[in-house]
Amino acid sequence: MTGPRRHTTDEMQDHDHDHDHDHDHSHFDEMELRVRALRSVLVAKGHVDPAALDVLIDTYERQVGPRNGARVVARAWADPAFKAWLLRDATAAIASMGYQGRQGEHMVVLENTPQRHHLVVCTLCSCYPWPVLGLPPTWYKSAPYRSRAVRDPAGVLAEFGLSLPPGTQIHVADSTAEVRYLVLPMRPAGTEGLDEEQLADLVTRDSMIGTGLPRQPCAPGRSPAFVPQPAGRRAFP
């Protein structure tokens, strides 16, 4: 067979529209080989337990993700005492739900209000609260977001389709140390009758970074109860 090897994952097929595909595929093949070689030699020398790699990948690919943070936000919306604890000592309040540890050792929750909207960035690298949001999306780690979020946050929010009411002050939190920030978005109107699980379904990852707002519940009496996630859901390859 001639031509480049076909990648089978959906990511491979739909990314990089402005790059030459042959070049890109051979580049990825080269990275596969290089990383595999490094893995082999580290395992052979006894520095790496290959089963530990599997656990690490499974943890961050399938277990830890933004649904954790969504449950924290939903509980804060539903329980004023928990919300007060969360704003006073986020690390402890979040740990009480079982979310703690690496890249979330020191948590601060920033409450959005009609007066102040918070947006989180890490201009120096990619600091992000893993226990509650999982690994960061590519855009969060990208140069365009990291460069612009501090200099033109309103413009960045506009790119996400978010325009704040006039008079809302923006506070950008640049995560320059080991404190990790989670935004507590405002609870949408019309959600009075919802339980925590239903509320969590409204909480998007981006609303906890500050680049989005929670979903709105559908009008009463409609079924299904909620607007589907606009970004769509994709299965793992």
């Binding site: 596969e32 490094l38 893995r39 590519t138 970004a231 994709r234």
Partner: peptide, 19 residues
Amino acid sequence: PEPEDERFHAAWERDAFAL
């Protein structure tokens, strides 16, 4: 933008992360 459940974009990224 990126879907919430997207984590890695190639198999080698998983190993680079875990290593």
